[in-house]
Design a protein around this nucleic acid. Structure first.
Lengths: 135, 135, 135, 135
DNA sequence: GTGGTCTAGACCACC
DNA sequence: GTGGTCTAGACCACA
């Protein structure tokens, strides 16, 4: 399983799960139509409470990343279900403003910050290719 | 005053204050040696409790952005007090990994994200120049 | 419980608590993974306010000595979380310069001061062995 | 003048002054019978409030380090006025217990701590000899 | 008048 | 039940 939790982190467990699912989609480890373990299954796998998994799935559902079927289980949505919209852009910009401002304060310049992002995206793609070669 | 709060936000008030001070430093609206309003003054201005401001100031103090004097009040530190260090880089990368992953999921590519950051930094500098011209 | 407060002391209560926890770790009365009483529990035990305990715990957390979990409570960290670093050495030296200077003024010599420290460390170890024998 | 203040420090100014006078006595920069500037003079020299100097001098007087004469001014006492007494030992030990405990927690051993103290005392003596050669 | 400490009591997020 | 946040109000230390 691709999920590793840090139970000591200050980040709520449900947020960690949500983030890792999103990162897995970005790396294409999870694609449209892929199933996620049931709430009970994942709760058992990770040794956490049902409610915690439930909350993580509900957030991902609300964000458009997946659909929860009563019977079929939890399925990753096609990408058009979570295309960036106006509100997302606004939110993204606000988050980046805060992070970028601090980075600028601490002496980083535009290129250094961009390099970090380019590296992150390169990593996402590498992982993707890696798995494709596996197949 | 440059501070605007969203009391309904999930982001704690003291974090909002902390973020806005950091952004003001990035824009050079606040520079080395500048004073911030006293704890009581800012609490009155913003209509929040004194302890909330205190917490925000203490976080900024701990992060190296400012110094708190018993008598003189609160002063912005010189930039060398909050230069990026190893741990900050690690933290920054982790934050950007999560944000970037979601952006990639939602169909943005490297250039689009970088453009957002370039624009943010441009804005920071514009504000800076704007104020300098005022003088 | 190993904590005794002097409410009339000039030393803030939260500092007294912090110091005693550190001393307990040095004596290995508290070890990695051990739990501390919950904020409310210790506040009740000591007859002080919850926020005072909270502040003590947060200082210890910031110093790396413990981790605060939302649900599980407060746990002592493994020793590698609070290994001496450069800044700590500088700070330690400054503190010892002041104390040592006064001791020298008052007629103590190097050997006498060192003997005090050797005795203190011996005591720390004795307590440790004592408890091990108990088991 | 041997006094350098850090107005940004969290240590109260009167404590800084007190500490530096004690350190100067330890280095024998100040000896029995030496005069200190008057309250007004030192306040002017350091650019601080009269009350601050007054408080520092009163603490030093109470600790036995100096005598304040109405007319003659402020004079360093002979060493027998501030010989270590029982209460001082108790206090010293308490302070060192806290500092040493933290040092032990952070991985220092007895020899490392003692080396720091030996070095400090060596420095005190070096300064002393240095000045004697000046004469 | 400044920040620092402490108390008391409330509501919320997490699990 | 745990810690986190926020409020309200008090007293003290510093300068």
């Amino acid at each position: 399983m691709f999920l590793t939790l840090d139970l000591n982190s200050e980040i709520p467990i449900y947020t960690q799960i949500r983030n890792q699912v999103v990162m897995a989609i970005a790396k294409q480890e999870l694609k449209e139509g892929d199933f996620l373990p049931s709430v009970r299954q994942m709760a058992a796998d990770l040794g956490v409470n049902l409610h915690t998994i439930n909350k993580a799935y509900n957030i991902l559902k609300q964000e458009g990343f997946l659909t929860v079927h009563r019977r079929k289980g939890v399925v990753i949505n096609p990408t058009d279900k979570y295309k960036a919209e106006k509100e997302y852009y606004k939110n993204l910009k606000e988050q980046l403003e805060i992070i970028t401002s601090e980075a600028v304060c601490r002496g980083l310049n535009s290129e250094e910050i961009n390099k970090i992002i380019v590296d992150i995206i390169k990593d996402l793609n590498n992982n993707e290719r890696g798995r494709e070669n596996e197949c």
